[in-house]
Nucleic acid binder design. Structure first.
Length: 170
DNA sequence: GCCAGAACTCTGG
DNA sequence: CCAGAGTTCTGGC
């Protein structure tokens, strides 16, 4: 199976994303394309990788607008591979409105689970291959503080600040 | 099935 | 702030 990928420059650094024929299946944030490509290859061992900027322009356009603070990212076609539980968590994450955050505990409860599942929710978030598109950065600790983010907590904080700023009317 | 680990949370000092 | 206990899901053996 072959994946196409593209990348764009953003205030966060380089953003690189890969897609299968069904939709976007991977997105990473880093300093250089080469570093991101290395991570992508580690996550997806086999695939033929082919750069396709024009074919994925719809995604970079949406992401570029989002990262510029123009508003919520348009809904892009996603091709997520994960356990049923993970997919459930990712769906719950995507239900969080732009500019808002939800605690891991609240997400666990919305899934009909006990507060202990918050840890599992965090684990599913960490396994999310498409940050930004599945807004795992909107999941925070019970006291509102940030807990962790695959691409560094600093970037998570930046994302949240961006969403707040563009949501605030003043 | 058992054991260890995780982007959690609550309680007690 | 630090330590301990509780809960749910994942991954290796």
């Amino acid at each position: 199976m072959e994946l196409t990928y593209t990348s764009l420059e953003s205030p966060l650094g380089r953003v690189l994303l890969a897609a299968s024929c069904r939709g976007i299946c991977w997105l990473g944030i880093g300093d250089t394309d080469a570093a991101l490509l290395a991570v992508l290859r580690a996550d997806w061992p086999s695939p033929g990788l082919r750069r396709d900027d024009s074919g994925l322009a719809y995604a970079t356009d949406a992401l570029g607008a989002y990262l510029a603070g123009c508003g919520p990212c348009a809904t892009l076609p996603l091709d997520l591979a994960g356990t049923p539980f993970q997919r459930r968590v990712w769906a719950a994450l995507r239900a969080i409105p732009y500019g808002e955050t939800r605690t891991y505990r609240a997400i666990a409860e919305s899934l009909g689970l006990g507060p202990g599942a918050a840890r599992a929710v965090g684990g599913a978030g960490a396994a999310n291959p498409v940050s930004l598109l599945v807004p795992c950065h909107r999941a925070v600790g019970s006291d509102g503080t940030l807990r962790g983010f695959r691409w560094s907590v600093a970037r998570k904080a930046w994302l949240l600040a961006l969403e707040r700023r563009s949501t605030a009317t003043g």
